[in-house]
Design a protein around this nucleic acid. Structure first.
Length: 506
RNA sequence: GCGCCUGUAGCUCAGCGGAAGAGCGGCGGCCUUCUAAGCCGCGGGUCGGGGGUUCGAAUCCCUCCAGGCGCGCCA
């Protein structure tokens, strides 16, 4: 909540003797802000909600900045506020500047966000793009909320698929077809032309794509490194041998099944993914992360419980592990779902999507859907609609404000409100006041998609304000310039949180 | 069979206990004034069906229907 709103809620809470939540009614006739506190308190106070609301109304009307209060409907309190209250709210925003809405934590949490972690057997697909857009935005939110955040990419640089990938590249180098089940994509030819290690160059190329997508990976963790820890780790775990394979007794901690950690000799005697998972998690926890967030596609949902069990197997808290699943991206072609396969090379790449619709539109598009929603991406439709992407609507608002502020030059911006506020000014300010609460909620709910939604509303409120109210040369010039400044930095912040540029000109 | 996710406007989707929304598409208006990538108006919805909890349910619970994804000594 913004400070002004927090103060108002606090004073109301004092009057009510209970916590008060203020929300912005969608209909302006229902006040500038409203609370349901009387509705919630009525049962325990053994009063009717309207009685209680009527009592609170008198107390509320004595609060500074409150113009009048109405009791409405079943017992809502609708508050109408004075311009001076809005002036204070704006003043706080101007003082906060770029940090408006930032969280502060006395003890910041050390959080690791593990994201993408796609096998380095091919370039990143749009599915990985969704992971990157989501994971990176979540990391930005967590950091803005005042935590210490690190982004990590876990590289599966060994194992069956990697062997197949190398074999495929080598086959191409000899001018042969890849082996049975090998990688058939065109990029294999390109990798085959290089001298160096194909896996290494694939990792580099993935890193370049991510950088282009404005995702900065702080650390790359190698599966091969993690597996070196296994012998020592296995000794400490409760394991047994069956059919020649080494199992961990994870059912003792309510896992759905005991997991194989090392395959039987007939199957190569190699460690499984689960074994590497354990070693990797042990490594994360030793590095002192208080929270390890895994961003995984829904096709991995079977491992969600496993990671929590893994924490317990290592003698640590399962709550330190947080698995976020996002649903898959389906590619539609001619209205039908296309089956993608990285091995067949039958995929839509993140680089291709960026090329097709633009970087900002791609990031916006991929993060604006909630993670629980399957994305049906019609690539032709996306190309057709790319110029109409809402991202440009928001960026346009930012550019417009920049233009006004540039023209205003040295003219003074302030927060002294005019004697009466127009609906457009009030609407815009109320939207800005929502921002800190919105950010806090989006962070807590791990819901970065709330940011683009809010940004559209904010841009909407600004465009309306712009159209109806002249800034430079008006009698409320200083106040309106202040409003412009606060709006611009908030839009810029929103765009930054989802990795999108905030242009000065368009 | 079991588990997870989804079903909201013609299309793509937000909203996830407090008074139904956006973008795109359709129709009609608005540029001698700080960017028309904009603004204003119109049309458009049994929030998958049915029960329940609640003063109040798109939102929580149960159930049914439809779709997606999983359930390997695969990765």
């Amino acid at each position: 909540m913004s400070l002004a709103l927090e103060r108002l809620a606090g004073e109301l809470a004092g009057a009510a003797g209970a916590a008060v939540e203020l929300e912005r009614p969608s209909d302006p006739k229902h006040g500038d802000f409203a609370t349901n506190v009387a509705l919630r308190l009525a049962p325990e106070r053994r009063r009717t909600p309207r009685e209680l609301a009527t009592e609170l109304k008198d107390a509320a009307e004595r609060i500074a900045g409150v113009e009048r209060v109405e009791v409405a409907g079943p017992g809502f309190l609708n508050l109408f506020l004075e311009p001076s209250w809005y002036g204070e709210a704006l003043a706080e925003m101007l003082v906060a500047g770029r940090d408006f809405g930032a969280g502060s934590r006395e003890h910041p949490e050390r959080v690791q966000v593990e994201l993408v972690s796609a096998n380095p057997t091919g370039p990143l697909t749009v599915g990985s793009g969704r992971n990157a857009a989501y994971g990176d935005s979540l990391a930005r939110l967590l950091s803005f909320a005042g935590n210490e955040v690190e982004r990590e990419y876990y590289v599966n640089d060994c194992g069956t698929q990697i062997d197949l990938f190398r074999a495929s590249v080598e086959a191409r180098q000899r001018g042969e077809e890849p082996p049975e089940g090998g990688y058939l994509g065109d990029y294999v030819f390109e990798i085959a032309r290089d001298e160096g290690d194909p896996v290494r160059s694939m990792i580099e190329s993935i890193g370049q794509t991510l950088e282009r997508f404005r995702v900065q990976i702080d650390n790359w963790a190698l599966q091969s490194e993690m597996e070196k820890r296994l012998p020592a780790l296995l000794e400490k775990l409760d394991t047994y041998t069956a059919d020649g394979a080494l199992y961990i007794r994870s059912t003792a901690l309510e896992d759905e099944k005991d997991r194989v950690l090392v395959r039987s000799p007939e199957r190569g005697g190699t460690p499984t993914y689960e074994a590497a998972d354990l070693a990797y998690l042990a490594d994360k926890l030793e590095r002192g992360f208080e929270r390890a967030i895994y961003v995984l596609g829904a096709d991995h949902h079977g491992v969600r419980e496993w990671f929590r069990v893994a924490a317990r197997l290592l003698g640590d808290e399962p709550d330190k592990v947080e698995v976020i699943l996002y649903q898959l991206v389906h590619i539609l072609e001619g209205g039908r779902t296309k089956k993608m396969s990285k091995r067949r090379g039958d995929i839509v790449l993140l680089d291709e999507l960026i090329e097709l619709i633009g970087l900002d539109a791609a990031r916006w598009y991929l993060v604006s859907r909630g993670p629980d929603q399957t994305i049906e991406l019609d690539i032709e439709l996306a190309a057709e609609h790319s110029q109409k992407n809402p991202v440009y609507y928001v960026q346009y608002a930012h550019a417009r404000i920049s233009s006004i502020l540039a023209k205003a030059g040295e003219l003074e911006a302030g927060a002294d409100p005019p004697s009466e506020l127009s609906e457009e000014e009030k609407g815009l300010l109320k939207r800005l006041i929502e921002f800190p609460g919105l950010v806090a909620e989006a962070t807590a709910r791990r819901a970065p998609q709330a940011i683009p939604t809010y940004a559209i509303r904010l841009a909407d409120d600004f465009h309306r304000f712009y159209h109806h109210r002249r800034v430079i040369g008006s009698s409320a010039q200083g106040f309106r310039l202040g409003l412009c400044q606060a709006t611009r930095s908030t839009i810029a912040r929103c765009l930054d949180l989802i990795g999108v540029e905030a242009p000065e000109r368009m």
